[in-house]
């Protein structure tokens, strides 16, 4: 392999916290819809959770809308479904809103349609990052399942934050949240291992800091709380409160990973020369 020469990579500045918020809020909103539908929330609970999920997705899209240079042309975002994952994300969001509203209005079958579209939305978000070839930490293919699983895990976390309002979760759901957290952290380890040697040192530092938060606050702490509840050490309102804390920690840990991925680990690869010029050789 040829030696590579070049100046140091630097953090991209094209996408700032507003773009990151699209991944954070969009992910948690879509995940909340998926979690609420897949695990049988019904009646007022489903309505509230789906509406909250839509509001979060909308908030994320609003954040990114404030970042684009020509906001009055925003509808142009729909022009290129043939190859742009940003267009596909916008289309899936456009379909998600009416489907979600129909689900909230208890129109039969639409809850599942909304859940499917929410999954499609976060899948598009993952593919959006992967298609950004200029950023090594984003173009790694494992970023796609990581974004999807992170979204569902965060949605699950928020589901448990809201659960006391709707009558609380159930033991199978506790276990499911735990399983999602484990899957998320395993994917994180795999993703991080794949990046070894391909990302700039400052990006590694940012990712590792976010990873530590994910492992401790976003995974270990919620799992301990879930285990406490599952063991019967707490019950009733105390159990619901512990699960709400677990859910909040799970959601915040994942959200920070995505925020850091966009705003702190988005280093390009700089410029490299495969060869140095051999002067005097003409």
């Amino acid at each position: 392999m040829n030696p590579a020469y070049g100046p140091n990579p630097w953090q991209q500045t094209s996408w700032d916290a507003r773009a990151a918020c699209n991944f954070v809020f969009g992910g948690v909103g879509a995940g909340l819809i998926v979690f609420a539908v897949l695990f049988g929330a019904g009646g007022l609970a489903l309505k509230g959770l789906v509406l909250a999920g839509l509001a979060l997705v909308g908030l994320g899209l609003f954040c990114v809308w404030t970042e684009i240079g020509r906001p009055l042309r925003a509808l142009h975002v729909f022009i290129n479904p043939r190859s742009s994952w940003m267009t596909r994300e916008a289309l899936s969001a456009t379909l998600l809103f009416p489907a979600g509203l129909a689900a909230a209005a208890a129109v039969p079958g639409f809850a599942w349609v909304a859940a499917g579209l929410a999954l499609a939305f976060v899948y598009c978000q993952g593919r959006m990052l992967q298609a950004a070839k200029g950023i090594p930490a984003w173009r790694e293919p494992l970023v796609v399942p990581l974004i999807v699983v992170t979204a569902v895990a965060e949605g699950g976390g928020v589901f448990f934050v809201a659960a006391p309002l709707g009558g609380g979760g159930t033991p199978p759901l506790d276990a499911l949240l735990g399983a999602m957290l484990l899957l998320r952290v395993l994917l994180w380890f795999a993703y991080r291992r794949r990046l070894a040697g391909t990302v700039a040192p400052p990006a590694r530092v940012a990712l590792d800091a976010a990873g530590r938060l994910l492992q401790l606050a976003g995974t270990l702490a919620p799992l301990v709380l879930i285990a406490l509840v599952a063991s019967g050490a707490a019950s009733g309102a105390a159990a619901a409160a512990l699960m709400a804390i677990a859910g909040l920690a799970a959601a915040l840990g994942g959200a920070y990973v995505k925020y850091a991925l966009v705003t702190r680990a988005g280093f390009n690869q700089g410029f490299m020369l495969a060869r140095l010029p051999v002067r005097g050789s003409r």
Partner: peptide
């Protein structure tokens, strides 16, 4: 639209 997706 100035989304800067091309830039990244």
């Amino acid at each position: 639209i100035g989304c800067a997706y091309c830039a990244v």
